[in-house]
Design a protein around this nucleic acid. Structure first.
Lengths: 236, 236
DNA sequence: CCGGAAAAGATTGCATACGATTTTTGTGCA
DNA sequence: TGCACAAAAATCGTATGCAATCTTTTCCGG
């Protein structure tokens, strides 16, 4: 049983091929296999996934709605390169939404959910123990999956979709502006949140979540650098 | 100067023809000129706006992302017919987000913004005074625009987009499940919120917003009816 | 007169084609 | 060598065509 089934249960089953390509690309972006600024040409995506440009284009359009891809008229689609300001907005949004999600989840969490959380925490722990860039990427992804799992438990499909977008964009931001191993402390905070859920201490879960988000953002270096404009101009 | 310019400034200027069609259709849905469940065939939309099915399809895809349109594989697109459960989720989401938006707006509001709010309130008042279904539609729309204006003042593009979706879906929900003239009291609450903003009383703005949302939802009749399934089956 | 199967029609999913725009390459001139 | 400008290539925006799927109509047996 895959954790993705649990999280995306409602929305990935239906619809068409474009959705599958979107998911694939989203994973690649979130995993940092596709660097910010990378050009995603319709033709290339199409041949890569063995579909026509029509379908590739639809997938790119979806990603552009999620803010993971920026499209410029007559120029194409690029992996988003969020500015520090955008990064702040992402976290400001999460500060508004996620404590509430924690409360909602707290009120609905079942024993099965707790088990799923435990499994998720174990996986996080495994990646943290490992070394190397691959483990690092998996670690960021697993950390995001924790938040998505929480959102799915909260039982609000709309908020869940918002969180999917915010978590994906956060991964981008962390990849771009992250300083240290945020995840070591992040993991312990996740564990604490699950503890609060288990003991039905909703208020505490909410507080822990708020602090957790603060900690993630505090680990970022959001000072504007001289470089980005140039690097951006060079499509790099 | 149009209020839409103020609200959608960042996002409507760029991009393509599909966006214009989307905006047009969205207005029609929010204004209730297109009833929930109405079929939006690609061909019809295309000929209506004098574009090919390709472009029409893109516009419908956007609306489906916003939750205003539901698409079924090989069957087409229909104006969304939100269930009571979805309606609750919409308002639960707004309860999480909008008080925070009110606080953010409170911290950034300028004299020019206040003037825009006043103009908006005046317009609301005008429609409330008028009689007839057209005025009623305009009234719902104007009421939504107030919330969008607030979101634009808050200065967070991500939250602003979330609110665009939530307000649009709320309009649908109110059209479907609304009981009375919610707007009479809604208008006075809007006025109070602007008052709080003007006196920089952020905490009060937040509280007023929360109660305002509660009041809107309280005016809905979200009991499940026997009818909907049948009406839906009849495409009516 | 009614019910159900088969054909006709309509609509979507997807691929491909073509003009328009952008980017790159190549060439002549200072 | 360096730069300006034009040709070529690549890429996008959009229309259209065809197969697959769904809907509606027709027709026939009961």
């Amino acid at each position: 049983m895959n954790i993705a089934d649990h999280i995306y249960s409602t929305d990935s089953a239906n619809q068409d091929r474009a959705q599958a390509i979107r998911d694939n690309l989203r994973d690649a972006i979130v995993d940092r296999r596709l660097a910010p600024g990378t050009k995603l040409s319709e033709g290339e995506v199409g041949t890569l996934f063995d579909v026509s440009r029509t379908v590739a284009r639809a997938a790119l359009q979806m990603l552009s709605f999620e803010g993971l891809v920026r499209t410029e008229r007559n120029r194409g689609a690029f992996v988003a390169n969020p500015s520090p300001e955008e990064a702040r907005q992402v976290f400001a949004s999460r500060r508004l939404i996620e404590p509430g999600i924690a409360v909602a989840a707290c009120g609905r969490v079942t024993a099965a959910d707790i088990a799923a959380f435990r499994a998720q925490l174990d996986e996080e722990g495994r990646f943290i123990a490992e070394r190397g860039p691959t483990a690092r990427r998996s670690e960021i992804k697993a950390s995001g999956d924790f938040h998505l799992l929480l959102a799915s438990v909260a039982g609000n499909g709309i908020l869940q979709r918002f969180m999917e977008e915010l978590v994906a964009r956060s991964s981008l931001v962390i990849a771009l502006y992250g300083r240290s191993g945020v995840s070591a402390c992040g993991h312990s905070e996740h564990t604490k949140i699950v503890g609060a859920l288990e003991s039905s201490d909703c208020e505490r879960a909410s507080q822990l979540m708020l602090h957790h988000i603060d900690h993630i953002e505090a680990d970022l270096d959001l000072r504007v650098r001289a470089g980005p404009a140039l690097r951006e101009a060079l499509n790099f």
